[in-house]
Structures are given as structure tokens and as C-alpha cells.
Write a protein that binds this DNA or RNA. Structure first.
Length: 296
DNA sequence: ATGGCAGCGTCACGCTGA
């Protein structure tokens, strides 16, 4: 089973590129971020014509996530509310220091369409569009950190459900110096601050592994190049689109690659797709992926 | 230190992204 993630920066503007890529690569699952379209206007037909089912959660102009899958989509969950409860919006899970921000953002947690998940062939596929944060002194930065704290709690509940987990998306964080083109200049700034990295580390914990780093320890591999500053032409990028696997799925991973060539398209997204290949379900006799498994 | 490019919405330019 191949699972892909791609921030397409408008699914309607990028539709031809996305469909052409699906036809060429034929992953079983494609998780999209920044679809930027209300659900009623999502271009379903071209996906369905290729045999993909869709689970979508969008809004006009901003954000928006979707899962396309050739395998049945089961138990679709939308938003962090799905597990934390709609009455709180995750509010009760925030640290005391975040409470002021929480009051402000509790509504936004449910209004901004950044989270969708589904069980696919026994795997819980969680598709995320992590807030950008804008800058270190921005209210949006506070929101980003609060959102990540909510996500940590969300995963704790998810874990109880026992399905092996594949968490993908645009994390808007470069976890380490090797994940950006100029770590000396960029470290400590937005997407590379200690607080963001710590918050992501809290989400990932010891039990999830960055699929790309299972195969490639080196720097120089990016998934996002800024439209501005000629970043693509000079290959000044970041690796902010990630695929995290529980231990059981890490053992099944046979490769993880960034399809950098898509950033070179005419009128491209500023992100490239990332794809993980999983030998799933396991071919040997203990393929008990329907049973409870401990990915903690 | 700032802006740069791109998409959206509403219809000239502001907001947002990262």
C-alpha cells in the first residue's frame, strides 16, 4: 500500500496536475492539504473516475483537507472535535499558559478545516494541515502551539482505538537543522523555533517514526520551496511535509520518497508530494491488523 | 529589515500562506 501526502495549494487550480500525478503513480491513498474549496464545490468527479473514494473537509479560500483512496474509507473522522468533543474544541486540554489563546481560538479549532482521518485497510490514516504560525510574536503562533497541544491529546485518544497509525501532512515545522537549506539563518525562526520543535516532538513521541528518515539521513531533501525569492531555482527549500508511522508500520515501510519533480511543473504548488511504500497488510501469517495492536 | 509570489474573494486590493 502506498500512501501519499501533498499540499496542493488549491485543489481546483492544481486539479490537472493532481489527476495526472495520480494516473501516473497510482498510490492507493492520497492525502491533500490546502484544498481551499467548500465541500459542495470540491471537484469529485475526476478522482472518482480514477476509482478513488473521497473524504473531504473544506472551506472557502483557506485550509481544507481531503483523503482520496482506492480502498474503502471507513470511520471517517473530521476535526480534532471528533475525539476531543465538540463542546470543548479541545479547550480543556490546553496548558494553563495557553488559556487566553484558547478562549480566542476554541472556535477556530473547529472552524478551520485542518484534520481528517479514515481507517483504510485497517490503518488509521490521519491527514493534517498544521497551522503556519506566521511569526514568533503573532497570535497565530500561539494558536499553532495550542493546536499542537490539542493534537497530542487527540492522538492519546486515537491510540486507545488500537489501529496502526499513519499520520501525514503539512506540519509547517522543520524538525531538525538538516530539514532546511540554511539552518544557521533559519533556526529559531518560524517553523524552526524550539517551542515548535518541542511541541511536534510531544506529538510524535517515541512511538512514531518519520518515514523519510528511515531511509535518508542526509540533508538537502526538501518538500517545500517558497514561491518568493526564487527558492525553487536555487533549491532553497524546507522538509516540512512528513509521514509518521507507528512501530508496526515502520517495520512494514519499504521506502519513502519526495516527488520533487512536481515542484517543477508549470504553475506548481509550492509543495511536492511525499510517498511512503508499506508492505501492508503483512504477507506472512500474523496479519492480524484487525486485532488490537499496541503502537504505544 | 523588507519584500518577493500565488490563490481567493469580490471586483482593486487586502488577506493569507510559510
Amino acid at each position: 500500500m502506498r500512501i501519499a501526502t501533498w499540499n496542493v495549494n488549491s485543489v481546483r487550480t492544481r486539479l490537472d496536475q493532481v489527476i495526472a500525478w495520480l494516473e501516473q503513480e497510482q498510490p492507493e491513498v492520497l492525502c491533500l492539504q490546502e484544498t481551499k474549496v467548500a465541500d459542495a464545490l470540491f471537484p469529485r468527479q475526476p478522482f472518482e473516475a480514477l476509482g478513488y473514494q473521497l473524504a473531504i473537509s473544506g472551506q472557502k479560500a483557506y485550509n481544507g483537507v481531503a483523503i482520496a483512496s482506492t480502498l474503502p474509507l471507513e470511520d471517517v473522522q473530521i476535526g480534532l472535535d471528533a475525539l476531543l468533543g465538540p463542546s470543548t474544541g479541545g479547550h480543556h486540554d490546553l496548558e494553563a499558559a495557553d488559556l487566553e489563546a484558547a478562549d480566542l481560538e476554541a472556535v477556530a479549532l473547529s472552524e478551520q478545516k485542518r484534520v481528517i482521518s479514515a481507517r483504510i485497510d485497517g490503518v488509521r490514516v490521519l491527514n493534517l494541515y498544521v497551522p503556519n504560525g506566521n511569526s514568533l510574536n503573532s497570535e497565530k503562533y500561539t494558536y499553532k502551539l495550542a493546536w499542537l497541544a490539542c493534537l497530542k491529546r487527540y492522538l492519546a485518544v486515537q491510540e486507545l482505538q488500537g489501529d496502526p497509525l499513519c499520520m501525514v501532512g503539512d506540519f509547517n515545522i522543520g524538525p531538525e537543522a538538516r530539514d532546511m537549506h540554511d539552518p544557521k539563518r533559519l533556526s529559531g525562526g518560524i517553523m524552526a523555533s524550539d517551542a515548535e520543535r518541542t511541541a511536534l516532538g510531544e506529538v510524535v513521541g517515541e512511538r512514531l517514526g518519520d518515514a523519510f528518515r528511515l531511509f535518508e539521513p542526509g540533508s538537502g531533501h526538501w518538500s517545500w520551496w517558497d514561491y518568493r525569492t526564487g527558492a525553487w531555482d536555487t533549491d532553497r527549500g524546507w522538509r516540512i511535509d512528513h509521514i509518521y508511522l507507528c512501530e508496526q508500520l515502520q517495520a512494514c515501510a519499504t521506502g519513502c520518497v519526495i516527488h520533487k519533480n512536481q515542484r517543477g511543473n508549470v504553475q506548481p504548488s509550492d509543495h511536492a508530494p511525499v510517498v511512503v511504500n508499506l508492505a501492508w497488510p503483512p504477507a506472512d501469517g500474523d496479519a492480524d491488523h484487525d486485532a488490537d495492536v499496541d503502537w504505544g
